[in-house]
Design a protein around this nucleic acid. Structure first.
Lengths: 167, 167
DNA sequence: CACCATTATTGATTAGCATAACAATCCGCG
DNA sequence: CGCGGATTGTTATGCTAATCAATAATGGTG
């Protein structure tokens, strides 16, 4: 549900553009009442732009998240990264494989547990993260330009109350 | 990025639970500043529960959306449904195949355009949609219980301003 | 009528994600 | 010390959804 395609090519049937109105597709009433719907559309719109933003540096959304988490927790294990990102351990493997293959992260042998690696950012990874952070901040500012700073803060607070619920 | 797993099984290394603090995984600073991150987490949390809610009636999220849109626009074409949902026409085919296979929707031959079908809900589809709408409303109320009615309205308004931007 | 656009459909391809299995290693307990 | 269970990284497999191209049938337009 997005209806973000260009000119809504609804079938015009047999009526020209004389006086007849083109049959406009209506949005179901319930969509307007539900928070989850507005949430989904806003998230989708922003995520699209976010993906395009990081793609300019040939980075996928999950990779940026991984870089940021590794930078904030140098030497963490792969499972720690996986649980932090809410993905499976197997997903972390391919994720780090990609980062390591591009020289952005490295698997150092852990000194306390020979099963695990201590994941670190390389120098290239740190500069890449710096450039990404800059662009992502700009992206977020641009996408929320319709909100004042106070509104932005209130929005974040309300969203946190939605997912931070004590269950 | 979700960190919603149970007890954060961060590796404890070699320290017991005596006085040493278990190495807590920190969230990157930038995540807290970005609207898109809070948006993503809230959307994910709510979507999870939403999917489970409709799954109780053996319906997938996209199928509920299709049912609601068809009910609001009886006799629309498949491409109209596809553009409304923001998916490809080929996706609408399999979507309606499933609904038709379960007797919830029907493809009636259009009387004005022999290429298109007029998609309608069957009686079973209408009662199914009614039951779904009931449960989804309850789900939305439950998920947004941390917000007052006024806050909910303000939240929806702000979210709309995020995806309704005039581009 | 001729030409091009549109519709529904099929098939192939891809990406993402969860699941299961497995060897290496760690930890706890006798 | 040694054994059993748990954990870590890894690989393979399957599934779901999304994307794209191609095609036959039909519509609209000059």
């Amino acid at each position: 549900m997005s209806a973000r395609k260009k000119s809504a090519s609804a079938p015009r049937g047999a009526n020209s553009d004389a006086g007849l109105v083109a049959p406009q597709i209506k949005e179901p009433l319930i969509f307007g009442e539900i928070v989850g719907y507005a949430l989904r559309r806003a998230q989708f719109a922003i995520y699209q732009d976010y993906a395009r933003t990081v793609a300019e540096l040939d980075i996928r959304p999950a990779q940026f998240a991984a870089l940021a988490i590794i930078a904030a927790n140098p030497g963490l294990s792969q499972t720690a990264l996986a649980t932090m990102m809410g993905i499976d351990r197997s997903g972390a493997v391919t994720l780090i494989d990609a980062l390591e293959g591009r020289g952005l992260a490295a698997r150092l042998p852990s000194q306390v547990d020979r099963r695990t690696y201590a994941i670190m950012l390389t120098a290239a990874g740190q500069t890449m993260l710096a450039r990404l952070t800059e662009r992502v901040s700009e992206h977020d500012r641009r996408m929320t330009a319709a909100l004042s700073e106070a509104e932005k803060a209130r929005l974040i607070d309300m969203l946190r109350r939605l997912y931070d619920r004590p269950n």
